Simulated scan of single mutants.
Amino acid sequence: MTNLYPYLAFENTKEALTYYEDVFGATDVIRLPVTKEQASQFGLDETQAESATMHAVFVIGGTQLYAADSFGKTGQLNGAISLMLDYDITNEADAKEIQALYDRVKDHESINIELPFEEQFWGGKMGVFTDKYGVRWMLHGTDYEKMAQQHQ
C-alpha cells in the first residue's frame, strides 16, 4: 500500500521541534542531526553540523509527522496546503486528544485562528489555524459510521 506522509522543511528544525513540543504538546520526538562527516554533503561546515537536522519525526494529535532542515531549498509556506487532523467524533479518546490540542494552542500568541474549533452545520466539528511557521492546520471531526451510511 502506498502512503503519503507530511514532511515539513524548516530553516531550523531543531528550533521548530522545540516549538511544537512547547506549544502543541508534540511527543515521541526523534531528531537526527547532521554529523561532522556529513556536513559537506549538506553545504555546511563541521561547526554547523550538530545544530542542523537531516531527519526528524514527531507526533501531534496522534499523527506522525516528519521534518528536516530546508538547507536553503524552500521558500515560505503560502497556505496552499493544509495539514488536516481528521478523527471520528464517536471515538472518545481521539475527540479528547484533538480538543486538548486546540485548547492548548488557541490562545498562544503565535497561533492565528481562522475558524474556531466548534460544531459545524454538517454535523461535524472543525477548526482551522496557522502556526508561527505558516503551517495551516485543520482539525476535523465527523461521525464516520453515519457518513458511511449516507454514502451507501
Rank of each mutant, 00 (worst) to 15 (best):
E21T: 14
V105Y: 05
A93V: 10
I60D: 09
L77C: 03
V59L: 09
T90V: 15
S82Q: 15
D69M: 00
A68P: 01
T53P: 02
L17Y: 04
I113M: 09
E97F: 02
G127R: 00
Y87Q: 08
K96F: 03
I111S: 06
I98N: 07
F121Q: 14
R31I: 15
Y20R: 03
R104E: 06
G127V: 05
G75V: 09
K106N: 12
G123N: 13
A100F: 09
A39G: 02
M84Q: 15
M84F: 14
E97S: 11
D22A: 14
N112L: 15
F58W: 04
E46Q: 07
Y87A: 00
D107I: 06
N78D: 14
S40Y: 12
S70W: 04
T47L: 03
Y19L: 05
A80N: 15
A52V: 01
S40N: 14
Y19N: 08
A52W: 02
F117C: 02
W122Q: 00
L32N: 15
Y66G: 01
G127Y: 01
T53R: 00
Y19P: 01
D88R: 11
H55N: 10
A93N: 10
V57N: 09
T90D: 13
P33Q: 04
L85P: 03
A93W: 01
Y102G: 00
S40P: 10
P116A: 11
A16I: 04
E114I: 15
I81C: 07
V105F: 02
Y87C: 03
T63A: 14
A93R: 10
I89S: 05
T35N: 10
S70E: 11
S82D: 14
V23F: 06
F42L: 08
Q99D: 13
D94G: 00
P33G: 03
W122I: 05
A16T: 04
L32E: 13
L83Q: 02
R31W: 00
I81W: 00
S51A: 13
V29M: 09
F71M: 04
K96Q: 12
G62C: 10
Y19R: 03
A56Y: 01
T63P: 01
A67Y: 05
T35L: 12
M126P: 03
Q48V: 07
H108P: 08
D69E: 02
L83T: 03
T27K: 09
Y20Q: 06
F117A: 04
T53N: 07
L115T: 02
I30K: 10
Q64M: 15
D45I: 14
D88E: 12
I81H: 12
A67E: 00
D88L: 08
